[in-house]
Design a binder for these strands. Sequence first.
DNA 1: TTTATCTGATCCAATAATGAACCATTCATA
DNA 2: TATGAATGGTTCATTATTGGATCAGATAAA
Lengths: 223, 223
Amino acid sequence: MPKLVANDIAIALKKRISLGEWMENGRMPPERDLASEFGVARNTVRRAVGLLEDDGTVVRHVGRGTFLTAANPASMAATVARMEGTSPADMMEIRQLLEPAAASFAATNASAGELNAVREAHKIACASQDMPTFEHWDAEFHHRIFACSRNDFLKEIHNLMRILRNQRPWFEMKKRSFSEERRATYCSEHQVVLDALLARDSEGASNAMLTHLRTVERNLLGR
Amino acid sequence: MPKLVANDIAIALKKRISLGEWMENGRMPPERDLASEFGVARNTVRRAVGLLEDDGTVVRHVGRGTFLTAANPASMAATVARMEGTSPADMMEIRQLLEPAAASFAATNASAGELNAVREAHKIACASQDMPTFEHWDAEFHHRIFACSRNDFLKEIHNLMRILRNQRPWFEMKKRSFSEERRATYCSEHQVVLDALLARDSEGASNAMLTHLRTVERNLLGR
DNA sequence: TTTATCTGATCCAATAATGAACCATTCATA
DNA sequence: TATGAATGGTTCATTATTGGATCAGATAAA
């Protein structure tokens, strides 16, 4: 039985909360009740509820109970939740704003070691034999360019985009759009970006990145 | 049955991962289960999973299990947490990338009503007498421009920036940098942006916004 | 033969879940 | 006001699950 049950219970509870359960009075059942309902020890339920508490879904009061937090529309969590619903088209538009800039920053700011890491990712991606490996090192190539942009906020935005790209709508899209020919195209476009970075040519890097992203957008969205 | 079974298993696992398996909770089955599923010794599965780990596809924790790095629900929260620590300088750099683009989109995409809302925010900001009121309507002006950019992802990124700007380091900074003269400067610069929007001049809007953000950066960071 | 891989097995270390007891706070009610 | 029930907070010993590590033997490839 013990297989990260607490985690699963937390997920189940969040689902039920999001479906409106316990909304009338905003009060969740006592831990002891949940424990028997889930057929699990109270300590386990406590851990699960602790997770909800950590991400602000819920607050607990001794002697009173556990309560749903009032939905705060301005909260970070809500923003992130909405982000998960944005379209690939919108994100591609923003990537075309940010990534050329990141490449440009990288060309001027990156250390030799960082550029080496970029080159390494490129090499592995080009040599990869299966689609998932290519996917991973392709993403890593882009990520490492952001990593040497010397702008932490930019890096974190890219992190967000990377996470979102690993979710629902993107999966189907990437699967559909993958082909050996496109992989070759991406590799040669990455090479141009890499060469510009190594030459410390920030305008060249920016342009090469933009060209690449337009190709990606065309492949992904079929424009 | 000769060689590299581990490699084949690794590829099979990656394929299944890339098709979305184990995405809900981001947790792979225990090695012992995979071993029996693939009809192979655990050591072999360990090697295969070791390859995924080298890849960065997966992380392993003794006593807990093996987890996909991409689908980790905590990774989003961690990213956001790190964002809270990024510097105003870094964020201003990114604002100068995004907001001119947002203004440009708005100039072409906004409805008359939306532009009216922008004008309204501008008017109230200019008429405001105290710093908090001005702050609020200044932020609202920018926000409403993003709101008519017709790009949901861009809007949410701005939302994030807005939340971050209402936290510690920014607050002090804004207070320190505020003055009646600067308020007047901001109003006149906003006016230029607004005029360009109303004229549907996307390049003009973009340039005016960039000019304004450079002023803000200079005032905030003292460059 | 030599080398690399897979097998099957055993033990270790870290983490999770259980079940139980006891504490602290709140609240309704006697 | 005082009592007791309900509820979250804490701790502990025990058991189960899981990845980490190692080893001797079998098997296939160079």
